[in-house]
């Protein structure tokens, strides 16, 4: 691990499509740092799948690697086909909250249930960023968005908790104000098998922050820091006390037979 490490060694020389200050850039670089620290000189053992949305541009076509840019919400099924036929490759999914737990929610739950051996990194900016700031399944109650001009009248989904319930082997949530923890969590997940889910709460000043009253991305990061509650503390807090907080940390780490293991065992039996 050299001090002069630059994420550029993993990137194609293309302009990044993100607004300046976008949290997606942090998630991108922490992933690449994690890969570097784990000793991956190249990303040739990885396949990246993503859907449609700003966050889905993180790997594709920027990473010097195989990247499959799918449709809005459909990255996990495509990752399923790839992983089942090439179990030797690390299949990583990047996507926004709309992509992963909005339009693609059913795939997310079923992949966790099946314990499909992939790592899903969801950039939760609490909004539909790419389409200009519409309400998402993760938007906080009462937040103003372009389609909830009077404030959202719905309660947000806790994707991390859902992943635990559905059967994921590893689940964590961090924010872009916790880059080191996020990176360490990615490293941990990359060394594990089964369905792994990391939720990165992330700032989108352009489509969410401005309308919610934030001046700049720094303010949003400060907000994440202030609202973050370690999961250990959250466990003894009431639901009311937790309203508006961001529970961070490791939600689960466990071993279960993975889909690749059970499918290939079945194939062996069928060939007897």
């Amino acid at each position: 691990m050299s001090k002069s490490f630059s994420v550029k060694k993993y990137l194609r020389p293309l302009l990044l499509p993100f607004c300046s200050g976008c949290g997606g850039i942090t998630v991108m670089s922490e992933f690449l740092r994690a890969a570097n620290e784990l000793g991956y000189e190249k990303l040739d053992k990885f396949v990246f799948c993503s859907g449609i949305g700003c966050s889905s541009w993180i790997p594709s076509p920027h990473f010097v690697a195989d990247s499959v840019h799918t449709l809005h919400g459909r990255s996990i099924p495509v990752a399923t086909g790839i992983k089942l036929m090439r179990p030797d490759l690390h299949v990583i999914v990047f996507g926004g909250d709309g992509d992963i737990v909005g339009i693609g929610l059913s795939h997310f739950i079923h992949a966790a249930r099946r314990n499909l051996d992939i790592l899903v990194i969801m950039v939760n900016n609490m909004i539909y960023g790419m389409t200009g700031g519409q309400v998402a399944p993760t938007t906080p109650f009462k937040a103003k968005t372009t389609t909830t001009p009077y404030g959202s009248f719905e309660y947000p989904l806790d994707a991390a908790k859902l992943a635990v319930t559905a059967g994921a082997c590893y689940v964590s949530r961090w924010t872009t104000a916790h880059p080191k923890e996020l990176k360490d969590s990615i490293k941990k997940a990359l060394r594990m098998q089964g369905f792994r889910f990391i939720e990165a709460v992330s700032q989108c000043l352009t489509a969410y922050g401005r309308r919610a009253g934030f001046k700049d991305s720094w303010e949003m990061l400060k907000w994440f820091k202030e609202k973050a509650i370690p999961i250990e503390s959250a466990e003894v807090m009431s639901e009311k006390a937790l309203t508006g907080k961001i529970v961070v940390g490791e939600f689960v780490r466990r071993k279960r037979p993975t889909l690749v293991e059970t499918i290939y065992r079945t194939i062996k039996e069928a060939q007897k």
């Binding site: 799948c49 449709l71 099924p77 495509v78 399923t80 086909g81 790839i82 089942l84 036929m85 795939h107």
Partner: peptide, 9 residues
Amino acid sequence: GAAVGASWA
């Protein structure tokens, strides 16, 4: 989606 993924595999 899975079929298309398998094809790219």
